[in-house]
Design a protein around this nucleic acid. Structure first.
Lengths: 112, 112
DNA sequence: CTCCTATAGGTAGAAATGCTACATATAGCG
DNA sequence: CGCTATATGTAGCATTTCTACCTATAGGAG
């Protein structure tokens, strides 16, 4: 799947991956990959900066821990993040409907 | 509608607007706006560069004319453009299905 | 023990793409 | 005459994802 197609929709997906409970960054990447049958397999250079962005925006909150000798930064949704996720779902629905209609091909309005 | 959401999907929409026959740039913009009930109302600074990109890529072919004292550049799909449009539709279908599934919320696979 | 892979986090710089703001020019209406 | 719609265009900005790197630990293969 052309990954650039995600532009503008990744944040919602990352938030959704955290909806069921806290996860660390690497687990978010894996969850997204597994949930989409491998079709969305983000490079780490995309995941980590995106999580930092979301944290800076106050949509998720991270905390350090050490598990099995490896340090982890575990993220969870903030209240604002939950609201943002709900908004992302609404926007996606509208966006998908509009693009599907326009692309799918019904007759286009006549223009001179 | 958040306009950045279009990133990566605009080309397909522009190609679709030309599927039924040639149109000039301004008409493409209007057709897209009318077909989407005003939800996709692109600024000219988006439309014209995008059409130039598509022409450079060989997906559309433009030609100058003068109608009512105004110069127009009329575009039509090339064969390659038609194939690209078909591909864009396929990619959109898959993309929309994957994002809808991941965002829509079924249970996420467990990860430690 | 050493090498390789998976796990875990990260940054720097490039590439793509849509937007804002501006510039130009004609037609037509009030 | 000025304003709006039509018609095309460019320059530079902003955002976002990607590629290519770097660091480090755990654990299995050899």
């Amino acid at each position: 799947m052309r990954a650039e197609a995600l532009k503008g929709h990744l944040d919602g997906l990352l938030l959704a991956a955290l909806e069921d409970g806290p996860r660390h960054g690497y687990a978010v990447k894996e969850a997204l990959r597994d949930a989409t049958d491998g079709r969305i397999d983000l490079p780490t250079g995309t995941v980590y900066p995106a999580l930092h962005r979301l944290e800076n925006a106050g949509l998720i909150k991270g905390s350090w821990s050490v598990v099995g000798g490896r340090r982890r930064r575990t993220y969870e949704l903030t209240e604002q993040g939950r609201r943002s996720l709900a908004g992302a779902r609404d926007h996606w629905q509208e966006f998908a409907a509009v693009v599907s209609a326009a692309l799918g091909g019904g007759p286009w309005p006549a223009t001179n």
